[in-house]
Amino acid sequence: MELLLFNIFNGLIIGMFYALMALGLSLILGLNGIINFSHGAFLALGGYIAYSLTPVIGFWGALIVSPFAVGLIGLLAERVLIRPLYGRDPLFSLLLTFGLAMIMQDLIRTFWGATGLPFTIPDTLSHPLSQVYFFVTGYRVFLVVLSLFATASLFALLRFTRVGVRIRAGNADLETVSALGINIYRLRAINFAVGILFAGLAGVLAAGRLGLTPTMGASLLMPSFVAIIVGGVGSLLGSMLGGIIIGVAAGIVTTYYPAASDVVIYLIMAVVLVVRPRGLLGQEGLLE
């Protein structure tokens, strides 16, 4: 029983990483129309930048600064690499982001080395909160709470601010948004940067949980795509739920049959695609 709880909780944490990734991927797929294969590399970058910033500004500073730094790098990548590809065959952006991911991974290897690095979290967060449930550390609880807070902030931004309303409108009909005087180039750039910022945040949080390797993001990327499909393409809430569901499901399966913990993700996807092809929440338009 304790082992099951342990694995469910671990699954929830991994699910949070999937969810943060899937949210960013979903945003970018929605407005920018790009399947961003470099999302995992941006995640890794977030972890590594936080690693280098921690000695200078501490863990808490790095936790805040690193995601925004990664978001800025994302903004630059959108401006220079992605923007020329809007309106072209989706294959172009697929290839580009795939190539970008490999370049970024190699840059990480060049700057930080190919071997894994430990990422230390503050002592205040590393202690278990309970003697019985030793796995419930402060850091893990913090990670779940911060992820939920970040997600809630994103939903508030999309619901209540004009930029958010325009992003939601643009998901449905970018052309009409443009005819209403909105600079859609800037809107797409902001949207891309916000999506990347979420990858960066997931990177910092994942670094403290899983450690740093240049490919840490790549292994989270595929399940995150699965999360989007399970949750329903076009629904941010669905992406979030999809991430948590597959994370927890993998955790449960680990308890009984560890070898199948990777496969179960794809089994869930297969079942969802057969029973409900549009995904769990992929019914109506965005964010309904």
């Binding site: 309303v165 939601r168 409108a169």
Partner: peptide
């Protein structure tokens, strides 16, 4: 924008 409220349509 059919999925947005009237008010949000006017905020675009």
């Amino acid at each position: 924008f059919g999925h947005l409220t009237v008010h949000d349509n006017l905020r675009v």
